[in-house]
């Protein structure tokens, strides 16, 4: 008979980075493949993380597979380090690695992020890990995975352009608000994850490595450093970057992406969505790191 408490006897602490080494190796292989074929969605097996699927588990799997003892991790959610889910993910990696974490973009080597790309200039040492809810840019137009895979293979992106045209005709506006599809390295269209279109240009020829992890959909894709990234658009109707016009009431920035702050009387002001950027401007130096 199997003892009733089988499995609970092994009171080992979790492996460095939570995932076991075999799983990490499978993920690293997928990441290498993703980097080799920019924009292509590489399938991975699903590995349960202690956060629910849909809460950044794709990003967490990438981070867990890559993080090493010399890494410094930054986690942001909607641009903010102190957003509650970012705090939760950062705490998780503090618990399962002995890595240093930081809120400074400059200091970090791995930045896991949801829905934003940091304002500060990224550099070659940076790995940006984006959490992706839906990796397939054509999914809302074509539900079948078999069909969209074939369309990618034939580089048949007609339906994306038709949707763009229809939006233009019906709404008079062709730009998306978030998650506007991008053409990576002139070959594959990819979903940039729900970043605002304001952030899209940061993907183009970025010196940082951009990795995208979709946990629930079990896909990893990548934009390697210095890779060309174009926004889905027509040549005669250029892509429009949308941004709320205003000035950060904390640091005075007008060029950063701003969150609207409302009170009972309506809009009362603006504040930088990127808290690290805002703090750096305010103090004039990066905010302190955490041990």
């Amino acid at each position: 008979m199997i003892p009733v408490n089988a499995g609970l006897q092994e009171q080992r602490s979790y492996n460095f980075g939570y995932l076991n080494e075999v799983t990490k190796r499978m993920l690293r292989r997928a990441i290498l493949k993703a980097v080799s074929i920019p924009g292509f969605q590489v399938p991975i097996a699903g590995h349960e993380m202690p956060l629910p699927p849909g809460w950044g588990t794709g990003g967490m799997q990438i981070t867990a597979a890559l993080i090493g003892r010399s890494d410094v991790l930054k986690v942001i959610d909607q641009g903010a380090d102190d957003s509650i889910n970012a705090t939760s993910i950062r705490r998780f990696f503090e618990r399962v690695t002995d890595c240093r974490t930081t809120s400074s973009t400059r200091e970090a080597t791995i930045i896991q992020t949801r829905h934003r790309i940091p304002e500060e200039r990224l550099s070659e040492g940076h790995i940006i890990v984006l959490q992706v809810p839906l990796p397939e840019p054509m999914r809302s137009l074509e539900p079948s995975e078999t069909v969209t895979r074939r369309l990618h293979a034939f580089q048949d992106y007609g339906m994306l352009y038709v949707r763009l045209y229809e939006d233009m005709v019906r709404l008079g506006d062709a730009g998306g608000g978030t998650n506007h599809p991008v053409l990576v390295n002139g070959r594959y269209f990819a979903a940039p994850s729900p970043i605002p279109t304001f952030d899209n240009h940061k993907l183009d020829r970025s010196p940082a490595l951009m990795l995208f992890g979709a946990g629930r959909h079990r896909r990893i894709y990548a934009i390697p450093p210095h890779t060309s990234v174009e926004n889905l658009s027509f040549r005669d109707r250029p892509f429009v970057v949308r941004k709320v016009e205003g000035r950060c009431s904390v640091c005075g920035s007008t060029e950063s992406y701003l969150d609207v702050i409302s009170d009972d009387n309506g809009i009362s002001g603006f504040v930088c969505s990127d808290t690290s950027f805002c703090a750096t401007r305010r103090i004039g130096e990066p905010v302190g790191s955490r041990a």
């Binding site: 956060l51 629910p52 699927p53 849909g54 809460w55 588990t57 959610d77 909607q78 641009g79 957003s83 509650i84 889910n85 949801r114 829905h115 934003r116 809810p133 608000g177 978030t178 729900p194 605002p196 629930r216 709320v244 992406y257 969150d259 609207v260 969505s273």
Partner: peptide, 15 residues
Amino acid sequence: GLLQSLKLPHYVSFQ
């Protein structure tokens, strides 16, 4: 997991 992820902040997306 996905359903409940709607509880996460979405103010950047909404805006």
